[in-house]
């Protein structure tokens, strides 16, 4: 365990933000294709790096993955097919967009759940506030007159 810690420390101590450098340029027929490629490589993760997509990573494996993306695009593969081909080899880890399945349904549904839940709580707060003021007893006529007198500045000392 200690050894592992030391190794980790040695590997990571020189950490810092990593730089991106364009290593190769691919030819595309249209701008739209070019954009599609840029988007695909931005959404795929380098399996070896410290959290980088394959667009920005200098690792050799990232280059291989970019090559694969390009090759499959040239063979008219769809985005799903390309991503799946990489997932098949490297695991779900390389997809930055988590799949929607049993495990992640909570994750994807969370914003809706949280907001709706929150709205319900607020609705409850409003409802309770309304109910509370309805429950408050009305002032009796006697008290009302007393109040009016006091507010208008007339001091009636006989009233306790």
């Amino acid at each position: 365990m200690r050894f592992f810690a030391v190794v980790l420390a040695c590997v990571f101590w020189f950490s810092g933000p990593a730089q991106a450098e364009v290593k190769e340029v691919y030819d595309f027929d249209t701008r739209a294709e070019e954009q599609r490629y840029q988007q695909l490589i931005a959404e795929l993760r380098c399996p070896k790096c410290q959290n980088q997509n394959i667009a920005d990573s200098n690792a050799p494996i990232s280059k291989d993955m970019r090559d694969q993306v390009y090759r499959m695009m040239k063979n008219d593969a769809s985005n799903d097919e390309i991503v799946n081909a990489l997932v098949l080899r490297f695991g779900e880890f390389v997809q930055y967009k988590p799949p929607v399945d049993r495990r992640t349904i909570l994750l994807w549904a969370f914003p809706a759940i949280a907001v709706i839940g929150g709205f319900l709580v607020v609705a409850g707060v409003v409802w309770r506030s309304r109910k509370r003021s309805q429950d408050e007893p009305e002032l009796s006529e006697h008290d009302k007159t007393r109040a009016e007198r006091m507010l208008s500045g007339q001091d009636d000392q006989t009233d306790r």
């Binding site: 365990m1 592992f4 810690a5 980790l8 399996p47 070896k48 410290q50 997932v87 098949l88 080899r89 490297f90 695991g91 779900e92 880890f93």
Partner: peptide
């Protein structure tokens, strides 16, 4: 803690 987050299990 202590796990290596970059260690991946093979997809195969």
């Amino acid at each position: 803690l202590g796990k290596d987050p970059t260690e991946l299990e093979s997809a195969l």
